[in-house]
Amino acid sequence: MDEFLGRLKKLIYPDKCTICRKLLSAETKEVLCDRCYSHLLKENLCNRCGRPYKIEYEGCLCCKEEEDSMVKRTIGLFPYCDHYRKAVLRWKYRGIRRYAKGYADLFVNDLVVTAILELDAFIPVPLAPSRAKKRGFNQAKDLAREMTLLTDIPTYDCLLRTRDTKPQAECTKEQRNKNVKGSIAINQKFTLPQLRRVAIVDDIYTTGSTAKECIKILKQEYAMKDAEFYLLVVCIGG
């Protein structure tokens, strides 16, 4: 019966490419069509920070701005534009939570990021209270937990938002640090073990203000002064 219902569901809601929405074959377990998958593997990556950049750039512009970043390396699957942007917004605002599993698979099995970085933990960026209530899920936590299922690297949901903040996408670059300052706190239910290499997980990277606020609190509260922090995101830009 369960198998029949599964097949019926696939007929009514067939799997589509996460990015371009092209129908995927019924037998495939992939989340991207061949065209979008080839674009992922051919994306230009900065040798220092791992961020994608467009061909016409002379190297990664973000690296010139963040030589002293608290984040050792930032890795994104896609640039925040075109079909990639639409895909991540569908994930967030239309609640297509299965996207998290697909993105996790790309990080772990296709880009083998978690193995290369030898991570000890994933820590998702917390969601503002009003958005968490309205949306019913935190996409960053979903992504982190899906990567945990694939790698056995633990996810620690140890951060909280203390207040609602304006969406970073609606702030100017100058406003973003001020917008998130003091908005992150520790969830006192968690006691973290000693961690050496930690990945902060989020959906979109713009200026990195939110991730840096998370890292600042972790360093203060858990004495993680010598830990290395990485940032794993689906899209970079904005």
Rank of each mutant, 00 (worst) to 15 (best):
D157M: 05
D34T: 11
Q168V: 09
G50W: 05
K29F: 06
L117Q: 03
V113C: 10
C60A: 10
M224R: 01
R7I: 14
S183L: 11
C60T: 08
A121W: 02
A121T: 08
R98V: 11
F107W: 03
L11D: 01
L8E: 00
M1I: 09
L231D: 03
I236S: 12
G238N: 09
T207P: 02
I116M: 06
V112R: 12
N187R: 11
D34R: 09
C46S: 09
M224I: 06
G182Y: 07
V113P: 01
R145P: 00
C49V: 13
V233D: 01
L89R: 03
Y53Q: 02
L149D: 11
Y80M: 07
R163G: 07
I75D: 00
Q139T: 11
C171W: 01
R35Y: 12
T162I: 14
L45S: 12
E213M: 09
P154A: 04
F229L: 04
K178W: 01
R90V: 05
V234H: 01
P154T: 02
K72F: 05
C33D: 10
I217E: 13
I186L: 13
L218P: 06
E67K: 13
E67D: 09
K219T: 07
C235L: 04
I55K: 10
R7Y: 10
P126T: 12
R21L: 14
S38F: 05
C235T: 15
K166W: 00
A100M: 06
M1H: 09
R196H: 14
R135V: 15
Q168M: 11
E146H: 06
A87V: 06
C46P: 03
F229Y: 08
I123M: 00
K181W: 08
C60R: 02
Y156C: 00
P79W: 02
M224N: 02
K72Q: 06
A128Y: 03
K22E: 14
R21Y: 07
C46H: 04
F137L: 09
L45I: 13
M1E: 09
D15Y: 03
M224V: 08
I116G: 01
Y53S: 04
H83E: 15
A144W: 00
T162S: 13
D202L: 10
A140R: 02
K22Q: 14
T191C: 08
I75L: 11
K10D: 14
V88I: 15
L195M: 13
G136P: 05
N109D: 11
Q168K: 01
G102N: 07
K92R: 04
K134P: 00
Y84W: 15
D202A: 12
V234A: 02
I204L: 14
G95I: 05
I236C: 07
K189I: 09
N187L: 08
L40N: 06
V113W: 01
F190H: 15
I123Y: 00
E118C: 13
C81Y: 08
M147Q: 03
L106V: 08
T210Q: 05
R135F: 14
C20E: 11
D202Y: 06
L149M: 07
K225D: 14
A185M: 10
R48A: 13
Y156R: 00
Q220N: 11
D2K: 09
N179T: 11
R163T: 08
A26N: 09
F122G: 06
V201S: 08
P154W: 02
A211N: 01
V201M: 05
T207I: 09
I116E: 12
D152P: 00
F107C: 10
K29C: 04
T191P: 00
R48F: 12
Q139C: 12
R73V: 05
T155L: 01
M147V: 07
T18Q: 08
